[in-house]
Every structure is written in structure tokens, then in C-alpha cells.
Amino acid sequence: MSISPPVPRFPSLNALKAFEAAARLGGFAPAAEELHVTAGAVAAQIKSLEQEIGAALFVRQARGVSLTPLGQRALQGFIAAFDMLGEAVRDLKRDAAPQKVHIAALPALAQLWLAPRLPAVRERLDGIDISVTALERPPNLKRVPFDLCLFYGSHSPHGSIRFAEDELLPVCTPEVARALKKPWDLKQAVCLTDTAWAGDWSTWAEKIMPGEGFAPRGPVFSLYALALQEALSGAGVLMSRRALVAPYLASGALVAPFSKTAPAGEAISLWLLPTSRRGGAAEQVMEALQVIAGDTDT
């Protein structure tokens, strides 16, 4: 009579993911945001894991959580394991559909910079299927099935394409511009602000009219595209980034009432993982965007 030993029970993968994310990010709340679940669900998964292994992984405190020595020792191994799992899943999907490219991009860049250039990319690279997902922050390419990232940044990842640093300038319709003779007139104007770049007004004002204590007065929008649409409708003056409003300036739909600009301190950057396949579809899209952007920006 043969004797088969019991198969060891593996802890829940969701519980292990919850532990790794909370340990790496320093709390249950940021882990919940990354995993798209509630903080309570993360806490429950970790509690279940702790009960299964018979030891605490976190110290719960009023101000948050911290790793126990056991949790600290385990963290790097789980980070490496989930990085490898993410890469394996991404490679599997890439090999199953080698002509598909998925781009993660900042919403404003996706709509106002990337979308107008995609028809030329598709014409140049017939047969490559390009998808775009708008995200507020660059994803960890080791964990998610994206091939390319397109975001603003003051520092770009190694191997990225870094386009010319953008510049800040107020823009509005020609009708609104008639009441703006000098920068100080903005104190009486309706100023449109995007929450993600609320500091752009201060950056421009400090360079163009230092010491004036200028503070924009007007509505605030959670999406840059909404603020831009309001500017196009004549609702006020938008502090813009030239790369995003260039077509409207070229058409005359918007004008820059003042000639002075300020550096944004950030450039549009496009990058992919260094381990991506040489000559693959993602790299072809990256190179095509570099050429097309160079043609349209000159």
C-alpha cells in the first residue's frame, strides 16, 4: 500500500499580494489603492496570512503600521517574486500578441499630445495594434501589462526618449486677450487652473512678475482637458503647457497675450522596460513617435 504525503497548502495569492504591497508601500491604504480594493480588505487578507503562518508580520499602531522583524526579512523576497511574476505575465501576453502595444499615459498627454499623433504612427506601422490607458502616475512596468509609458518628469528613466522641456504660458481666446495688456492685468481676470498643475501659475508668475504676490482667481478643474475646453469657450485664461496647446495656438483658436514664458521644469518622456524585445512592436512605436513628434514640433 503506497503512502502519499499530504500536499502542503499554499497561502492565498491575494493574501501574499496584500502583504507585499502593504510592506513595500508602508501601509494598508496605499496598498489598497494599488490593488484596487479597500484598506479593510487588505487588513483582512494580511490577518488571514498571519494566522496561517502563526506569526505577526505588522505591528499595528494608532498612526499606522510597521513591519515586524519577520516581515522585514521576508519583504525583499516577495518583491522579487512578484516582480518576476509580473514580468512573466507581461511576456506571456506579449508573445501571444506580438503586434499589440499598450501605452500608459498621463490623461492630458494621452488626449492632447498622443492622440493627434497616433494616426501617423498607425500609418507608419501598419499592422501594429495600439491601445492607450490614461493614468495619473507612471505604473510599475514590472507589475502591469503596459509596454510604454508617456508622462511628464524632471528626471527620465534610463533609455527613455526625453522630448524638449515644456514651457508655461497663459493662453485664452482672442476676445479675452483684448483686455490683457500686461501680465498684471491677470489679477482682474478669471484664471483657469488644473489641480494636477496648480503650481504652474506660481512658477510663471514668480518668473514674469516677481514680488507681486499673484494668486490666480477662478475655477479649478480635475482634468486639464476640461480647463482647456473652458479656455476655448472664452471662460478665462488658462496657464498652459505649450506642447499641449500648440495646435490651438497655430489655428488661432487660442492666443498667448504675453510673449514671456517660463520653463515648466519637466519634459515629456517616453520609455519602455530595458528588457523589452529589441526591434519589437513597442520599440517600433517608440521610434515612430520620436520621428513624428520631431516633425510636428519643428
Score class of each variant (00 low, 15 high):
residue 69 P to T: 08
residue 150 L to E: 02
residue 64 G to N: 11
residue 292 I to Y: 03
residue 241 R to T: 07
residue 118 L to Y: 13
residue 26 G to L: 11
residue 253 A to C: 11
residue 140 N to V: 06
residue 184 W to K: 15
residue 275 T to W: 08
residue 279 G to P: 03
residue 17 K to G: 01
residue 2 S to P: 12
residue 290 Q to I: 00
residue 49 L to C: 10
residue 273 L to Q: 14
residue 233 S to Q: 15
residue 71 G to P: 01
residue 211 G to E: 11
residue 176 V to E: 06
residue 160 S to V: 04
residue 148 L to T: 02
residue 89 V to P: 00
residue 298 T to I: 08
residue 135 L to V: 09
residue 20 E to P: 00
residue 61 Q to G: 14
residue 180 L to T: 01
residue 140 N to S: 14
residue 236 G to C: 05
residue 122 R to C: 08
residue 128 I to L: 09
residue 106 L to S: 09
residue 234 G to E: 00
residue 234 G to N: 02
residue 274 P to A: 10
residue 19 F to N: 02
residue 70 L to V: 14
residue 212 E to M: 14
residue 257 P to S: 04
residue 237 V to R: 03
residue 75 L to M: 14
residue 93 K to T: 02
residue 109 L to R: 00
residue 291 V to G: 04
residue 132 V to T: 15
residue 73 R to A: 14
residue 230 E to W: 00
residue 85 L to R: 08
residue 171 V to L: 07
residue 194 D to Y: 12
residue 1 M to K: 11
residue 89 V to I: 10
residue 99 Q to A: 11
residue 138 P to E: 15
residue 71 G to Y: 01
residue 188 Q to Y: 08
residue 259 S to I: 03
residue 32 A to M: 04
residue 216 P to T: 11
residue 202 S to H: 01
residue 246 A to Q: 15
residue 45 Q to D: 14
residue 118 L to N: 13
residue 119 P to I: 13
residue 129 D to Q: 13
residue 156 S to E: 07
residue 24 R to K: 12
residue 165 E to S: 10
residue 121 V to Q: 02
residue 149 C to K: 11
residue 62 A to T: 05
residue 156 S to H: 06
residue 191 C to E: 00
residue 171 V to S: 06
residue 24 R to T: 13
residue 105 A to V: 06
residue 278 R to C: 03
residue 262 A to K: 04
residue 239 M to L: 15
residue 12 S to M: 03
residue 257 P to H: 04
residue 59 V to F: 02
residue 216 P to E: 10
residue 96 A to S: 12
residue 215 A to F: 08
residue 38 T to C: 06
residue 293 A to M: 04
residue 9 R to W: 01
residue 268 I to F: 08
residue 184 W to M: 15
residue 42 V to I: 15
residue 261 T to M: 10
residue 62 A to S: 09
residue 98 P to H: 07
residue 243 A to Q: 09
residue 218 G to P: 01
residue 16 L to A: 12
residue 63 R to E: 11
residue 114 L to P: 05
residue 211 G to P: 06
residue 58 F to D: 01
residue 120 A to G: 02
residue 280 G to D: 07
residue 258 F to G: 00
residue 52 E to W: 06
residue 289 L to I: 10
residue 232 L to D: 09
residue 139 P to R: 07
residue 123 E to P: 01
residue 243 A to K: 03
residue 16 L to N: 09
residue 116 P to M: 05
residue 283 E to S: 12
residue 129 D to T: 11
residue 262 A to Y: 02
residue 184 W to T: 15
residue 45 Q to F: 02
residue 37 V to A: 06
residue 255 V to L: 08
residue 37 V to K: 09
residue 35 L to W: 11
residue 95 D to Y: 06
residue 2 S to Y: 05
residue 19 F to V: 07
residue 62 A to W: 00
residue 30 P to G: 06
